[in-house]
Simulated scan of single mutants.
Amino acid sequence: MAGAPADGGFNIHPMDQFVVKGLFSGEAPSGLADMFMITNQTLWLAISVLCIVALLVWGSRGRAMVPSRLQSVGELMYGFIHKMVEDVAGKDAIRFFPYVMTLFTFILFANLVALIPTSFSVTSHIAVTGVLAMMVFLTVTILGFILNGAGFLKLFWPSDAPAALKPVLAVIELISYFVRPVSHSIRLGANLMAGHAVLKVFAGFAGALGLGAVFPIAAIVAVYGLEVLVAVIQAYVFTILTCVYLKDALHPGH
């Protein structure tokens, strides 16, 4: 937020935009009593879901041979993710395509609607990205043991390494495996938070400088364009990493 200069400086608070507040009370939730409070985060989560429904359900309701614009976008997304799952995780991973498609569309739309002025970035919060990452981690781990039994542990045992290094590498592989949900979630959340914070800083300078805000406004335009790209890339990165982890569950010995 930007205001008048205070104590000779700019009064800019770029992190205020990430505060979760009650939609009607304006107060931050605290304790179990506010567990079911409808917040700004709840609102923009719902808007993201409605955008997905509008594109993939309402936009393709006609299933026309000559698709409309919305149907074309939906079909392009469908084909893109279907090919990604098949190329990265193999043909036997196609049965998990609905799960991967759901992840991609949710993250993509949550990232994009967060670029609307006065909106709220739900994917900048570890409460959201952490849940998504843990869902992937638990799904892959459980699936790996169900499909392969104890053979899933081959994932942690480098069979081609020298015998003396195998125990050390096994420990490293085990640690890196359990760090996956942390890196998976922080990569998404941190990139979104950093970009929105930079936008808020430049917006604060533009508001404070008034008519002399040519440079901050130009910077906002440039950073905004970059953030659109980041929103798409981060959805892609999260999804392709999910496919890589899924491949480990299906083919742990490879």
Rank of each mutant, 00 (worst) to 15 (best):
M15P: 00
V168H: 03
L169C: 00
L241C: 06
T129R: 11
P14R: 08
R69T: 10
W157Y: 13
E75I: 05
V168N: 01
M37L: 12
V221R: 01
A235S: 13
S159W: 11
D87I: 01
S159F: 10
G189L: 04
V201E: 02
A208T: 14
E86L: 06
G74R: 05
H13I: 07
L229F: 10
F96W: 10
F24L: 11
F156L: 15
G204R: 08
G90F: 02
F238G: 07
A28H: 10
A203L: 11
G189Y: 02
P162D: 15
V244L: 14
V57L: 09
L108R: 04
T139D: 13
H251S: 12
I116N: 02
E27R: 12
K166Y: 05
I217T: 05
V237G: 05
F80A: 13
L132T: 11
S119W: 00
R180T: 02
S159K: 15
A133C: 08
M35T: 15
A133W: 08
M135S: 15
F109G: 01
E227F: 03
D16Q: 12
T102R: 14
D34K: 07
A127Y: 11
A190N: 01
Y224W: 08
Y99T: 12
G207S: 12
M84C: 05
A231N: 08
E227T: 00
D34C: 04
I81F: 01
V73C: 10
S119G: 07
S48H: 00
K200V: 03
F137L: 08
K21A: 04
A231D: 09
A161H: 10
S159D: 14
P252M: 03
T139I: 11
I146S: 05
G204T: 12
Q71C: 06
Q41D: 02
L143Q: 09
V128S: 03
A206G: 06
L188P: 00
V100Y: 02
D92R: 13
V73W: 10
P158I: 13
E86R: 10
R63L: 09
V100I: 15
L241V: 07
A222C: 07
V171Y: 01
A194W: 00
L138A: 15
D87L: 11
K166P: 05
G207D: 10
M65V: 06
S72F: 07
H125W: 09
A194D: 03
S185R: 00
I186C: 01
N191M: 03
L115N: 04
C243F: 08
K154C: 03
G22C: 06
G62R: 13
I52S: 04
K91Y: 07
V221I: 14
I220M: 13
A127Q: 13
F137M: 11
V20E: 13
A164F: 03
A64P: 03
D16S: 14
F152T: 12
V237D: 14
G189D: 04
A170E: 02
E173G: 02
V182G: 00
V237E: 14
M101S: 07
Y245I: 00
Q41I: 01
G22S: 05
